[in-house]
Design a protein around this nucleic acid. Structure first.
Lengths: 247, 247
DNA sequence: CGACCGATTGACGACCATCAAAGGTAGTGG
DNA sequence: CCACTACCTTTGATGGTCGTCAATCGGTCG
């Protein structure tokens, strides 16, 4: 089977179902949510620190990241987002954006007005819990990244990051058996894991030499999931996936 | 003026008001929320990974932290929590706890049943937004820690952590002019910032030598806030405090 | 074909980790 | 009042993981 494709609203349903059980009525409500499409290129800023948007967006295709810079100009990538994710859901309740969001591949985005989201949640109150839960899961991912970047050596760290991506892609049906899209450059992986680009390159070489990953262009494949999982000390509890999605 | 003391429900109101404007009716609702007190000693686990609690708690006195361990037994402290904070609010929507929560000083805690919280939010729907916002602010803090621990040198990193604590304590009226409680040991600061205990000690000596902090036992004082802020590259935007609380 | 971007390699060094031990301080109990 | 203990802080010595700097290589695209 090839990688699943969805309409925007179907993708949102699939995403929410990966962490929250939806009723048929709620799905129907979600199908009626207005979503406005927009395509962007690689390395475009989508939302910037200080913005006060009246909408948020879902990724339909491609990857984005959120990042912050230090005064010295160093960049930390705080999260990678894949199709189905809502990188700026927080803007629903935090007026001022405190991060930057950029594409790391060509993307198709679906913009959703805050007011439409609020209306939907009023009509289907359990959806409030679903969206809240989505933000809580991402908070949990931030915590895991803190552990990963703070306490694990570079090799383990990158293995863990790859494990997480695979799991999250599988949850929305976007990872084939062992292969998935990995458009992030080595510089981006470096900024995500808090190591330098040069060292990232050497770690990736080691991971390839050990048979844990292989890649061609933007396609990465994981020959032996168990081995990678072990190398990355990966336990998916923190993703809080529904059992059906985790399988 | 001495450090503010509150009843449990007053403290919750004060805390929520630091990030969200409350109406008089909502405050009245909050005053009627049942909160059950409990005292614990230093270094007690309060909630553990895998738990499925039916309640959450607010800190009334003392400090707690949340942490995770790697397979090799290294500990990362993911957040420090001070009076007014709700370290396991996430349990309202994520059934399984994915972190450990422990006291780092003697604490008085106030336990709140999930069902009481849900009832309250049903009666005052804006409070849902307030509590959601509280969890989003903490997600924002996790992001800032990722930046801090990932990209800043040890000296800046610890200065930043101290700045954050001061701001958060002031927001709930728990930092006097320049002095506040700092019960965390150097080992705990080390695990929070991802550097070793030995190196933390040396950095603290440097901060003291530079006149940025001084401390006796559990009291820490900041002689020159502007200097510390600069040394820590501290910008409080990410705390999303109301203007009144930030002042 | 030249320009650009990302991946790769080499040499060197520093920040911070690791290991080990000693000094302070508080609390406990005889 | 003083041992005794436990915990935290401090110090010294050494070294490794990873950062920095710089250059080259390879592929893509206009």
């Amino acid at each position: 089977m090839s990688i699943a494709t969805h309409t925007p609203n179907q993708l949102m349903i699939r995403k929410l179902e990966s962490i929250f059980p939806l009723t048929e009525e709620e799905k129907q409500g979600l199908r009626e949510l207005p979503i406005k499409l927009s395509d962007i290129k690689t390395n475009q800023d989508i939302v910037k620190m200080g913005d006060q948007p009246s909408q948020c967006f879902m990724i339909l295709e491609g990857y984005t990241c959120i990042y912050k810079m230090t005064a010295e100009g160093k960049r930390q990538i705080l999260a990678l987002y894949v199709p189905g994710d809502l990188p700026d859901m927080q803007s629903l309740h935090l007026k001022v954006i405190d991060i930057n969001i950029a594409s790391i591949s060509p993307c198709r985005l679906g913009f959703i007005q805050h007011k439409d989201l609020r209306n939907l949640c009023e009509r289907y109150p359990r959806l409030t819990a679903a969206f809240w839960r989505e933000t809580l899961v991402h908070a949990s991912i931030f915590r895991e990244w803190l552990l990963n970047n703070g306490q694990r050596p570079a090799y383990t760290r990158i293995a863990h990051l790859i494990c997480e991506l695979v799991m999250r892609l599988k949850a929305v049906g976007l990872a084939e058996d062992k292969t998935f899209e990995m458009p992030a450059t080595q510089a981006e992986l470096a900024d995500a894991t808090g190591i330098t680009q040069v060292h990232t390159n050497r770690v990736l070489q080691a991971l390839r030499a050990d048979g844990l990953i292989s890649n061609e262009k933007v396609k990465m494949t994981v020959p032996d999931w168990q081995k990678l999982k072990k190398a990355g000390e990966f336990d998916p509890l923190y993703l809080h996936l529904q059992k059906t999605a985790a399988a």
